[in-house]
């Protein structure tokens, strides 16, 4: 009952969101200007990025101080949890858009270019001689001859790395609940080391693709879907790894208790999400 009578914490006034809005505007407007080869764009992008970083540090710092001071009860905690879940759901749908593009191209667009269904004249008149196949860079052969990225090798190693990191973060989580701080520290450290290893190998993989396989972002629909899907995933791994490092630093400072550690769990959820997306990528982009 005491929980029901407790007041929900409502912060009174915060400067961080407006700093974030101005920074986001600088970033977006600068990016637009930069893409148009404008003179000031890149500086606006730098300023906007710096502003957003400042906001993230300041805002999260404020929330962490509030959390450590103990003003958050069960309901505030629940708000953060649910917020994180729906944020991850929105990220899932973002990836779904790109997966949708991949499936549409493979199952519909390419067969149609090859004359399937009622599209025989598309093939005969526009793209005569095009044989639908996957992977392809399209009837125009955009980007020139290329070799697809084999799933054996780096991608397989990367799958193993990410799956292992999922285990290590779960070990860390259990260690946190059991009060085993030492194992928690090592489990978290192992997780982000595996994350950074993954990223290193992905850089290596992209290098291989560009230099040895002639596989580029401009290599037709295969290159487009390959790099956009794996690239956005890599961006999320980068973000997730940074989040893991932050959580690790907080653990070193003695944050989190066996019963009160939403920050840890949010990052763990995010990490599992990144992991699951990778499994989708590994199956649909690399193997099939």
């Amino acid at each position: 009952m005491s929980e029901a009578i407790r007041k929900y914490y409502v912060p009174h006034g915060s400067a961080w969101p407006i700093i974030g809005s101005v920074s986001l505007f600088l970033l977006a407007f600068g990016a637009g200007n930069w893409l148009n080869d404008g003179a000031i764009g890149r500086y606006m992008v730098y300023a906007g990025t710096a502003g957003l970083l400042y906001m993230v540090f300041g805002w999260f710092g404020e929330v962490i101080r509030e959390s450590v001071s103990g003003i958050f009860g069960r309901r505030e905690d629940s708000s953060f949890r649910q917020g994180m879940i729906w944020f991850i759901m929105s990220e899932v749908m973002f990836f779904a858009g790109f997966f949708g593009a991949l499936f549409y191209a493979r199952q519909l667009a390419i067969p149609w270019l090859g004359g399937e269904g009622a599209n025989i004249f598309t093939n005969l008149l526009l793209w005569s001689g095009f044989e639908p196949a996957w992977p392809t860079n399209g009837p125009g052969g955009l980007g020139g001859t290329f070799e697809p990225m084999p799933w054996k090798g780096l991608p397989l190693i990367n799958t193993a790395l990410l799956l292992t990191s999922s285990v290590t973060i779960t070990i860390a989580h259990h260690a946190l609940i059991d009060g085993n701080r030492k194992l928690l520290k090592w489990g978290l450290a192992a997780t982000f080391v595996l994350g950074f290893l993954f990223l290193g190998l992905q850089v290596e993989e992209y290098y291989e693709a560009y230099v040895h396989l002639n596989l580029k972002l401009s290599t037709g629909i295969y290159g487009s879907t390959f790099f956009m899907l794996t690239g956005f995933h890599g961006a999320h791994v980068t973000l997730g790894s940074i989040m893991l490092v932050v959580i690790w630093l907080r653990v070193l400072r003695g944050h989190f208790t066996p019963t009160h550690h939403f920050g840890f769990e949010a990052v763990a959820w995010y990490w599992h999400f990144v992991d699951v997306v990778w499994l989708g990528l590994f199956i649909f982009v690399y193997i099939l």
């Binding site: 858009g97 009837p139 487009s224």
Partner: peptide, 28 residues
């Protein structure tokens, strides 16, 4: 987020030579 994905593909089709919506590259 699906709209975000769609307009991102427009952006890369325009500036990064992707082929999501270009039949010559196998897109549509």
């Amino acid at each position: 987020p699906v709209l975000a994905a769609a307009v991102t593909m427009l952006l890369t089709d325009h500036y990064a030579a992707t082929s999501f919506f270009n039949a010559a590259g196998g897109g549509d």
